[in-house]
């Protein structure tokens, strides 16, 4: 099968949906013909679809998302780009109080078909304002969906579903994933929300991981296989809705759970998944749940500092060995 990058997969999803549906349009800072997006995801799209549908905006995150909300409730399907996930904080009211709640507050009178694409994650030494992983915040807001694709295939299929869906989606990308290649078919496909993917089958321990951590978990699993430990890697692909059945089924099979995420440990993605398993499948566990996450610090700049706080294969292997 043809191989393309995560970045190209996202761009294909945008291009295909814009060709399919004239109500789909993009807005964000420097996404247009002069720059093509800070991570080049939208490169070439303004040339094909024009500046009206690929709109460069001023540096006004709150207005970017708020404008997208207003367009979404009046018949359009906006896809907003916030240049870095850290900057979604500037649009927090529009995301958490408006986009997420408008349908509910107004008794289901309207829908908010809106996608906010934004890159999270550390690993490129750009410190505390450009490296965070805030996806758990958005899991905490009823009314939002949260997508966390780890591969080009998932990125394309989930983005197309996000654009076609009728709910606001925080579409989390990871800046280290953009150049990663993977198999993506030429033909049309979409991936439904709320369906996890077993990225690797195994029988001794379940690792639930998202985004870039899926790749680290897979590398750890490979190494552990050499030591006779069979690891199953479950990628939820969307955090809201969360495929609880897939996680619980895997835990029932392996009896052990390690949860890996790049966000802070306290009240984070790993906490929610651990709580789910503790609440609904504790009788199937043969060992305590282990969490590998960021140790509740801002993301530091200097390479040795940053490496120290971000989960890696070594930490994942250590956690697995503690429960097997």
């Amino acid at each position: 099968m043809r191989r393309i990058t995560y970045r190209e997969a996202l761009r294909e999803a945008l291009r295909e949906e814009m060709r399919r549906d004239s109500t789909v349009f993009l807005l964000g800072e420097d996404i247009g013909r002069y720059w093509g997006g800070a991570f080049k995801v939208t490169e070439g799209l303004a040339e094909e679809f024009g500046d009206e549908r690929v709109r460069d905006t001023p540096i006004s995150e709150s207005a970017i998302v708020g404008t997208a909300v207003g367009a979404a409730i009046t018949g359009m399907r906006p896809v907003a780009e916030i240049m870095f996930g850290d900057l979604t904080t500037l649009a927090m009211d529009q995301i958490a109080n408006q986009a997420a709640k408008i349908r509910y507050m107004f008794g289901g009178q309207t829908k908010v078909p809106l996608v906010v694409r934004t890159p999270f994650g550390a690993g490129v030494n750009i410190a505390a304002h450009h490296s965070q992983s805030l996806e758990a915040w958005y899991m905490h807001v009823p009314g939002l969906y949260v997508a966390v694709p780890s591969t080009p295939y998932d990125a394309k299929g989930l983005l197309k579903s996000a654009i076609r869906g009728n709910n606001p989606v925080i579409f989390c990308e990871h800046k280290l994933l953009y150049p990663i290649e993977g198999e993506v078919p030429e033909e049309e496909y979409t991936i439904p929300f709320g369906v996890a993917d077993i990225k690797r089958e195994g029988s001794d321990v379940t690792i639930v991981a998202t985004m870039y951590m899926v790749h680290k978990a897979l590398k750890a699993a490979e190494e552990l296989e050499g030591e006779g430990i069979s690891v199953e890697v479950v990628d939820p692909r969307t955090l809201t809705p969360l495929d609880k059945n897939a996680i619980i089924s895997s835990v029932k099979k392996t009896g052990r759970l390690v949860v890996v995420s790049e966000d802070c440990k306290t009240a984070g993605v790993t906490a929610e998944i651990a709580a789910l398993v503790a609440e609904e499948a504790i009788d199937y566990l043969d060992a305590p749940i282990k969490r590998v996450a960021e140790p509740d610090t801002p993301i530091p700049f200097s390479p040795p500092l940053e490496e120290y706080v971000i989960p890696n294969e070594k930490k994942i292997i250590k956690a697995v060995k503690e429960v097997v």
């Binding site: 109500t23 349009f25 009206e52 549908r53 709150s62 207005a63 998302v65 708020g66 404008t67 997208a68 909300v69 207003g70 367009a71 979404a72 409730i73 009046t74 018949g75 359009m76 906006p78 529009q94 408006q98």
Partner: peptide, 12 residues
């Protein structure tokens, strides 16, 4: 901003 978005929708 929501009103502005409705305005943009009208324009588009």
């Amino acid at each position: 901003p929501i009103a502005v978005g409705a305005g943009l929708s009208i324009k588009l």
